[in-house]
Amino acid sequence: MFKKLGVNVLAMSIDSMFVHKMWNDDELSKMVKGGIPFPMLSDAGGRVGKVYGIYDENAGVETRGRFIIDPDGVIQGYEVLTPAVGRNVSETIRQIQAFQLVRKTKGGEATPSGWQPGKKTLKPGINLVGKVWEEWTTKMAFDK
């Protein structure tokens, strides 16, 4: 899916590349055929994680930080979770699709709350001021 969207995925933890190899070869390759398709990077000492503000000094590990970076290298969105709760990959994909649409339209279209691919976008401009209620209802924040 990420490949289809033209997205490079990078995973990073404080583990060494040797541990990454063992984890991929011994366990993850049993979940994902052929192993993990993206680079597993090593951030010993959490130096990169500190710069991104997601390194937990007390535990000595990275938290579950996830950054969407556009083709110009600009961070468009991030999410940070504590270790015990996993990410929602579908939501990440939805956000990337929304950011890609906004970029493609050069900001001519915006994606309101609850937007999914194929659903109505908003066209910000003087004619939309005070008229969002005609274009968007609260129900649209929830339905598929």
Binding site: S13, Y52, T63
Partner: peptide, 9 residues
């Protein structure tokens, strides 16, 4: 390219 950078514990 779009990049998704994921840190994990």
């Amino acid at each position: 390219k779009w990049t998704l950078l994921c840190f994990y514990p």
